[in-house]
Nucleic acid binder design. Structure first.
Lengths: 389, 389
DNA sequence: CACTGAACTGGAAGCGCTCCCGGGAGTCCG
DNA sequence: CGGACTCCCGGGAGCGCTTCCAGTTCAGTG
């Protein structure tokens, strides 16, 4: 039995056991016109090395390295020669070798530990990643996306960063008790959070001002003459949900209104349906609903219509997130816009800064209200100004 | 001016120019209770090396390496000793060093070159990636997701694989003239396609049997008594769209029906709306529509309702894809199910096989019809059997 | 014209791991 | 009891790059 080759790692993790000699059964007749060489198989073409570049340019390897890295102390003539050699040979530096020498691998990971079924198909994450990715495109950093919903996946992620396959990590807020929360301390690798875990303030994070955003939403409802305002919360063991709920209470308290028309949801549309149903049941007099995300708002809209309540005529509805879907509801949803892509951008920028040895401050991004059709000014009870606070 | 450090690569790509010394302005007062060491900054903790493991276990580095890699020719006693040392030191092999020695980096890339705005938030891709990712979890391969919609992004992808930052590539079908189509020949890295580019048969691909799937859909319409069947095609410069259109014509021809109620769409809902509008205009007598994807089917549904045509009473509608959204339409959409996750799984398996030196065959996955509510059997013209082909 | 310092230059030592290879120990058989 | 295997084992040569350091060159000065 031949010694285990690294190739073998692809087949079965423990190299020993009955091994089937490759190539084996699932073998396709090669097409006559093509060779393995041209098809990305067998010995991949050997790339030229820095030594060869140096030799061709007639300089030392050190000098060649310096020009490749744009370092000083190289005469114009040699730089020129090296550049020519590079072009001629089609030289591409080997990132692995470079990583070994510098102990920096040149890539960062963005991890989604969400266990919702949409996984990373979630339009929210998609937008965050887009932000991350455009920001990273300005650097030489490569992005690895890791989706690690299961405990097994998390373990995999932890191993990945422990093994230093990434120079830094971006993590979307996890529940406060998630073991991953201490990745930074544990591995000594910079970690930037998107959002904050509940009860834990990470050293570096980018978050949206959920509390102020929620307040904006509710103040708008109040300003437009709504008084019996209900809210559908998210799962209150998350920071997002509590912050938004706090914003709701802030605004209600300041206006001297009762903040006890509350139903708990779970940030899903189905949860919104259930919560709205309970609200209508318990508080049939409500004249507005602040759903703390768009999905639940959509659910609420459906329930309200089913119960014959006109939106915005009878009941005003405000959501939160401003996902693309929000403008496809009927009526189009007035909602709080989160700068999601900016969130991603800032996370990436922060991580890059960290990697460059800086100590950036946590960032809290503002949210803003987007007026659409699910709220309409209504008659204000006598004795109050229509636009007063 | 100090020499360019690799760290500098994170800041500005060409190391020279006015450089701001880091740390700089955006500097946060450190919290008193924490040290840099614990926060993943400054010198990351030096990991133990194989040499140290070997020394502690009292064996040679070679022996230690063998037990790490599960290779033979190690006595049980030494294996035991090494394992103990590994545990004690918390040793984790350095993937970079390993990669340099084996010239295999241990990761593969899945690239989305789509330029649609949903980017990779697209639920279709999300499912493919999930399949890829579960399959890859069985190996030691890491997954890099690259979203490269712009020419610039493509260039980046090409550089990435030229520099051998990945051992293999998975590419979703691109338009036939995409320069990326020749990545395999160009770089000598194995490439597996998902779907096929138009007019080009890649050496290795996984595809869904779109033609047969489309045929299934149309045969179902015929079997249920529909005769004046229209179709909304995708952009006919893609293989998917042409294959599905061919399936439509196959079925129609076999049944001796006219296949000229055709409108071109673009696989978006808006496109479906436009196409359906045109169809109703040109062929007001149609009694069924085969929309070649679900998004367009949803658009068609809306238009039909707006024109007072009852679905399925007046017009039967069949879609293609069976995305989650398909069961949220009203009425729920009868559609052709694509095994999307399996597509991802098979792509990953194929790539792994390639990497292990095998030569797998291209795979074509079957599609199947999912019966829901948008088609209902209707009266069959006199002289024809209701269930006849 | 000797002298100083700054700008270059190339040799060489790693980075941490894999794997070839030759040697030693143990086993089996004639 | 010696030869021929078979198994183990450790030394050492890389993988391709960065970077320290000592040495060289060459203006510019007094």
């Amino acid at each position: 039995m031949p010694p285990a080759t690294p190739r073998e790692r692809f087949q079965n993790r423990s190299a020993y056991g009955p091994r089937i000699a490759a190539p084996r059964a699932n073998l396709c007749p090669p097409r006559f016109e093509e060779s393995d060489r041209t098809m990305g198989i067998s010995q991949p073409a050997r790339q030229p090395t820095l030594d060869e570049v140096a030799a061709l340019a007639g300089v030392s390897r050190s000098a060649a390295s310096r020009v490749i890295n744009n370092a000083p102390h190289v005469s114009a003539a040699k730089r020129e020669a090296v550049l020519r050699a590079v072009a001629e040979l089609g030289y591409v530096p080997n990132p692995t070798a470079r990583a070994l020498a510098t102990s920096q691998v040149g890539s960062v990971v963005f991890a989604v530990t969400n266990d919702n079924p949409a996984a990373f198909g979630d339009p929210f994450f998609a937008q965050v990643v887009r932000g991350v990715s455009t920001e990273l495109a300005k650097t030489d950093l490569e992005l690895m996306l890791v989706v690690a919903p299961s405990p097994h996946g998390r373990e995999r992620l932890r191993r990945l960063v422990r093994a230093r396959r990434a120079d830094g990590v971006m993590l979307m807020a996890l529940s406060g008790d998630d073991p991953l929360a201490h990745l930074a301390e544990e591995t000594g690798v910079p970690v930037v959070f998107g959002g904050r875990p509940l009860h834990v303030e990470p050293r570096w994070y980018v978050d949206v001002d959920n509390r102020a955003g929620a307040r904006l939403a509710v103040e708008h409802l109040i300003r437009t003459g709504h008084r019996r305002i209900a809210t559908i919360t998210g799962p209150l063991d998350t920071d997002v949900a509590t912050a938004r709920h706090r914003g709701f209470r802030d605004a209600m308290a300041e206006a001297g209104l009762s903040a006890d028309r509350v139903a708990a949801g779970d940030f899903t549309e189905a949860g919104g349906v259930a919560a709205m149903t309970r609200l209508l049941d318990a508080h049939p007099d409500l004249d507005a609903v602040f759903a703390t995300n768009d999905a639940m708002a959509a659910g609420a809209l459906r329930v309200l219509r089913a119960h014959g309540r006109d939106v915005p005529g009878d009941v005003g509805v405000v959501g939160f997130d401003d996902l693309p879907a929000a403008s496809h509801t009927d009526p189009q949803l007035t909602t709080v816009h989160q700068p999601i892509e900016a969130l991603g951008r800032e996370m990436a920028r922060m991580l890059v800064a960290l990697l460059a040895g800086e100590r950036p401050c946590p960032i809290i991004l503002p949210a803003r209200l987007v007026l659409r059709d699910s709220v309409r000014p209504r008659a204000v009870p006598a004795g109050e100004a229509a636009t007063g606070r």
